[in-house]
Amino acid sequence: MTDQQAEARSYLSEEMIAEFKAAFDMFDADGGGDISVKELGTVMRMLGQTPTKEELDAIIEEVDEDGSGTIDFEEFLVMMVRQ
């Protein structure tokens, strides 16, 4: 866990972390443990947004600390705390 990830967790109660985990699992449609650009786009479109591929890439790049091209749960928490 990076310093950013530990800091993000410090702002959240266990209840909030559990709620974010449920949301993360909804995004992680294939159950792979991370959110891909495609999965992020699908959920955002379900919520009425129309992000471009470039916008989706930028969202993932902003929090993808390990350079995997996807968002894992710890990175997702950082993203949610920043919102």
Rank of each mutant, 00 (worst) to 15 (best):
M1I: 15
D3R: 11
Q4V: 12
Q4K: 03
Q4E: 14
Q4L: 08
Q5D: 13
A6N: 09
E7D: 09
E7S: 08
A8D: 09
R9K: 11
S10G: 10
S10E: 11
Y11F: 07
Y11Q: 10
L12K: 04
L12A: 03
L12N: 02
S13Y: 01
E14S: 07
A18Q: 06
A18E: 12
E19Y: 07
F20Y: 15
F20G: 03
K21L: 02
A22L: 08
A23P: 01
A23T: 11
A23R: 07
F24N: 01
F24I: 02
F24W: 15
D25Y: 03
D25N: 13
D25A: 12
F27D: 00
A29K: 15
G32F: 05
G32S: 12
G33W: 00
G33L: 02
G33D: 02
D34H: 04
D34G: 11
S36N: 02
S36K: 08
V37M: 13
K38T: 13
K38D: 12
K38E: 13
K38I: 12
E39W: 06
E39M: 08
G41A: 12
G41F: 05
T42I: 10
T42V: 08
T42D: 15
V43A: 05
V43T: 02
M44C: 04
R45L: 04
R45C: 07
M46G: 10
M46P: 00
L47N: 03
L47I: 13
G48C: 02
Q49F: 14
P51E: 02
T52F: 01
T52C: 12
T52V: 04
T52Q: 13
K53C: 02
K53N: 09
E54R: 10
E54W: 06
E54I: 12
E54N: 05
A58F: 08
A58N: 10
I59G: 05
I60A: 08
E62F: 08
E62T: 13
V63T: 13
V63W: 14
D64P: 05
E65M: 13
E65S: 06
D66A: 08
D66C: 11
G67V: 08
G67R: 08
G67N: 10
S68K: 14
G69M: 05
G69R: 05
G69T: 14
I71E: 00
D72L: 10
D72T: 15
F73S: 00
F73D: 00
F73A: 01
F73H: 01
E75M: 14
E75N: 15
E75W: 02
F76C: 01
V78Q: 14
V78A: 13
M80K: 01
R82W: 13
R82G: 14
R82Y: 06
